[in-house]
Design a protein around this nucleic acid. Structure first.
Length: 524
DNA sequence: AGTGCCGGGGT
DNA sequence: ACCCCGGCACT
């Protein structure tokens, strides 16, 4: 398995929250014999950071904020019932992760903190120095695990500074390898230097692992709020946040997959004009505030019924609101300002790591619940689809090709002769995808069919999606006229069995012609 | 009118 | 799956 980094993002921060292990808290499981299987969960359930004597290795898992919240809620329920088994395997996003901790929970996970079940937002602090020492020793004994790691140059010191350096290195690596902002927008994004600076100086960031009033001491990283991070779409407004995220996630993955499968460049638009808002996810609330503290206060006072002036926060509010990347431009569109996802969020960064993940990840059914993406994004996304998916569609030619496909979707086997790779793709145009152009559009004024008629492109049925590409239409306006459902394809120009053999030799016709189906013998 | 073939039905 | 045909669009 190749090195892999997954970005972690959390709820209360604008943009991704990259969780890296605090020094001494790398998450090798003490109860796993010193081995540190990837997927090991630290207290926050996010990080796997394993170290070997020869190498310091980090694995940063990604978990979406929605599932974090769900897990948090679930755990808070299940812990009461004494269930401490790891539920990581139940998370689809983690299915690729090998076993972790032999199914045992990391020590400290789920344990009460301050008399209450441990919260996800609780700071990951090893209370006693000996704990830290033990943890580090265990880390040192940990052999290098072979999977899902990014090797970091060895720097094995027990000092806290060294630990911080490693953490910073991990964060930098993570940022470099996952953040398109970093790659494409160094002035605004977090380059290596800015990352470190932000790490040290960022206001929303804790350099220590003790509690702070605002973030409940989460060991986290909060990028500046004026950064839009296209790779981390915010949860949508719907109640089923996780589902929506999954759909988004799959959205990304599908886009990514098609992008890599077909080698088309993904337009990487950067938008700096985004403002991070915070939206209350409490049922029937939906209040949007501009500051996380305000939102926490709102939830605390309005929904949790706590004292407003009580600045004490246990972080529970984190689970009831989410951050929105609001496009400033779209703010002028009235209600559309509440659109939770910035348009560029749907355009994933193109990285080999993601590619690998995409290829390994089974596609999640795309089921958008809410038109979360503004029209611009939608068209962009559709552009990707229109550029990538249909271009490589090769129809299976069978003797009964007329039975192969219907007009709505395509079930296609894309076979690459050069690599021998065989990919089975089921592609279906999104609901708003511009339908195939009606044949009349390809007629010249004289009425003659142009050489790029659908029938000329390949076989008969796949003509449809390949049209825009063949014509070089990268962007097909979604306002394209929708052909009638029963649009017949233009008549082929090749001679058919009837003409060739004549009615008297009907027995010589191909079966399709005999059955009054599309001729198989003389395909256009 | 001739042709191509979609959609549907029968076996 | 195979076979047939009504009916439609197009030439």
């Amino acid at each position: 398995m190749e090195p892999k980094v997954r970005l972690v993002k959390r709820s209360a921060s604008p943009g991704p929250r990259i969780c890296s292990p605090p020094p001494g808290l790398t998450s090798c499981c003490p109860d796993s014999g010193g081995r540190s299987p990837p997927g090991t969960r630290v207290g926050c359930g996010l990080i796997s950071a394993c170290k070997a004597p020869g190498n310091a290795v980090y694995t940063v898992l990604v978990e979406d904020s929605a599932s974090l919240r769900r897990r948090a809620r679930r755990r808070s329920c299940e812990d009461g019932a004494g269930s401490k088994g790891s539920r990581l395997q139940q998370q689809p996003l983690f299915q690729k992760s090998p076993t972790h901790c032999n199914g045992k929970a990391v020590p400290g996970e789920g344990e009460p903190v301050n008399g209450r079940p441990r919260h996800l937002s609780d700071p990951l602090v090893l209370k006693r120095p000996e704990e830290e020492g033990v943890a580090l020793r265990l880390l040192d004994q940990t052999p290098l695990h072979q999977s899902a790691h990014i090797p970091v140059p060895r720097q094995r010191k027990l000092s806290e500074k060294a630990g911080i350096d490693e953490v910073i290195a991990a964060v930098v690596l993570t940022s470099l390898s996952t953040s398109p902002v970093v790659l494409n927008n160094p002035p605004n994004g977090l380059g290596t230097e800015p990352t470190c600076d932000a790490w040290k100086e960022g206001p929303a960031m804790s350099s220590s692992y003790s509690s702070s009033s605002n973030n409940s001491g989460e060991w986290s990283w909060d990028p500046p709020s004026d950064l839009s991070n296209p790779s981390t779409p915010s949860p949508p407004l719907t109640a089923d946040v996780s589902t929506s995220f999954l759909s988004l996630h799959s959205d990304l993955e599908e886009t990514e997959a098609s992008h890599f499968l077909f080698g088309d460049p993904i337009p990487r638009k950067r938008k700096n004009s985004t403002k991070v808002m915070f939206k209350c996810l409490w049922k029937n609330c939906g209040k949007v505030l501009s500051s996380s503290s305000g939102m926490q206060k709102h939830i605390r006072t309005i929904h949790l019924g706590r004292k407003a002036d009580l600045d004490q926060s246990d972080g529970e509010e984190d689970f009831y609101y989410t951050e929105l990347d609001v496009n400033v431009d779209s703010l002028t569109d009235g209600l559309s300002s509440l659109t939770p996802v910035s348009p560029t969020s749907s355009v994933p960064p193109a990285f080999p790591i993601l590619e690998e993940e995409v290829l390994q990840t089974p596609a999640v059914p795309l089921k958008p619940e809410v038109p979360m993406v503004p029209p611009l994004s939608q068209s962009a996304h559709m552009t990707i689809l229109s550029q990538s998916a249909p271009t490589s569609l090769c129809h299976i030619q069978t003797d009964h090709a007329y039975q192969a496909t219907g007009p709505a979707g395509l079930l296609t086997d894309v076979k690459s002769p050069s690599t021998g790779m065989e990919i089975s793709i089921s592609w279906q145009p999104p609901p708003l995808f511009p339908p195939p152009l009606p044949p009349v559009l390809f007629k010249s004024p004289s009425g003659c069919l142009t050489p790029i008629r659908p029938a000329d492109i390949g076989e008969k049925r796949p003509q449809v999606p390949a049209l825009p590409i063949a014509k070089g239409h990268a962007l097909v306006p979604s306002s394209m006229p929708k052909p009638a459902a029963g649009t017949r394809k233009p008549r082929g120009e090749a001679k058919k069995c009837r003409k060739v053999y004549g009615m008297e030799n009907r027995s010589m016709w191909c079966t399709a012609c005999r059955w009054k189906k599309a001729c198989q013998r003389f395909v256009d």
